Computed example of a mutant assay.
Amino acid sequence: MKKEDFELVRTKSGDELAAVVETLTTAGVPHRVSSSQAAFDITEVGRGDYPADMMVMVSRADLHAARLALEGSFAETELPADHFLHTASDEEILEILSVPADWDPFVVVHARRLAADRDIKPAEITVKSAEQIQALEMGRPAARWHLVLGWFSVLLGGIVGMGIGYSLAYMKESHAEGEFYTYDLRTREIGRWMMWSGVVMLVVWRFILASR
């Protein structure tokens, strides 16, 4: 997967894959098809179902256009009677519509329809979306075991600890809304201390070994 590629649709259905590819091609949206199976022939698209997951990928620049095209193609479809959206709460509908890029366009189209039927206000969606973006901007704290492993690795010689510290301090995740640090500010600060402590310990251990 290319760094800036986003997974638009994942399916095992040949019919669904062919329909998505046709919709994007008609709309002039660049895309590519990949598979969780190593050997995949693009000419097989539309020739039955697949034993592995098939993913339709688009770039960040084309993501909005791709989703609009697919949502338009799903606008006239019916929601299956056994679909999970039928039993989704208002809060769950809000969760979907606050981060639509994290959901299949089919789900988003019907979630919007249900939101209108239930009189869920656009302002509620806007507030929820802002909360989701804020959570992404803040990042998450690292697991305690991750920190313990990092500091333990620093004491053992530095190199692994330096790597763990660097990942805690600078790792980012790419979302449709942008690129955000994976970890929160406190964790990133700990990561920087861990990284530089690893450098110091590496020098110390080399000095000790060289003096023997």
Rank of each mutant, 00 (worst) to 15 (best):
E4Q: 12
E4W: 05
R10Q: 11
R10Y: 05
S13T: 11
G14D: 10
G14N: 09
D15F: 07
L17M: 01
L17A: 06
L17W: 01
A19E: 15
H31Q: 05
V33G: 03
V33C: 01
S34C: 08
S34Q: 14
S35V: 00
A38H: 14
A39P: 02
F40M: 05
D41A: 04
D41C: 00
T43M: 05
V45E: 07
V45P: 00
G46Q: 03
G48R: 02
D49L: 13
P51M: 01
A52T: 00
M55A: 06
M57E: 12
S59H: 04
A61G: 10
L63G: 02
A65P: 04
A66T: 08
A69C: 02
L70Y: 06
S73K: 06
S73Q: 07
F74Q: 11
A75R: 14
E76K: 10
P80M: 08
P80Q: 10
D82C: 00
D82L: 05
F84Q: 12
T87R: 15
T87Q: 13
A88V: 01
S89H: 14
L94P: 06
L94K: 13
E95A: 15
E95Y: 12
V99G: 02
V99E: 14
D102V: 07
W103T: 01
P105G: 05
V109E: 04
H110N: 09
L114A: 02
A116W: 00
K121A: 14
P122N: 08
P122K: 02
E124D: 15
K128M: 08
Q132C: 05
I133T: 15
L136D: 10
E137P: 00
M138W: 04
G139H: 04
R140C: 00
P141S: 07
A142G: 02
A142K: 04
R144K: 14
R144N: 08
W145K: 11
L147C: 04
V148R: 10
L156Q: 11
L156P: 00
L156F: 12
I159P: 05
I159Q: 12
V160G: 11
G161L: 03
G161A: 06
G163M: 06
I164S: 04
I164H: 09
G165F: 10
G165S: 09
Y166H: 15
L168K: 06
L168H: 07
L168R: 06
A169V: 03
Y170K: 11
M171W: 13
S174F: 11
T182C: 10
L185Q: 13
R186E: 12
T187W: 05
T187Y: 07
E189R: 14
E189K: 12
G191V: 04
M194F: 05
M194D: 09
M195S: 04
M201E: 11
F207K: 03
F207W: 13
I208Y: 12
I208M: 14
L209H: 09
S211R: 13
R212P: 01
R212W: 13
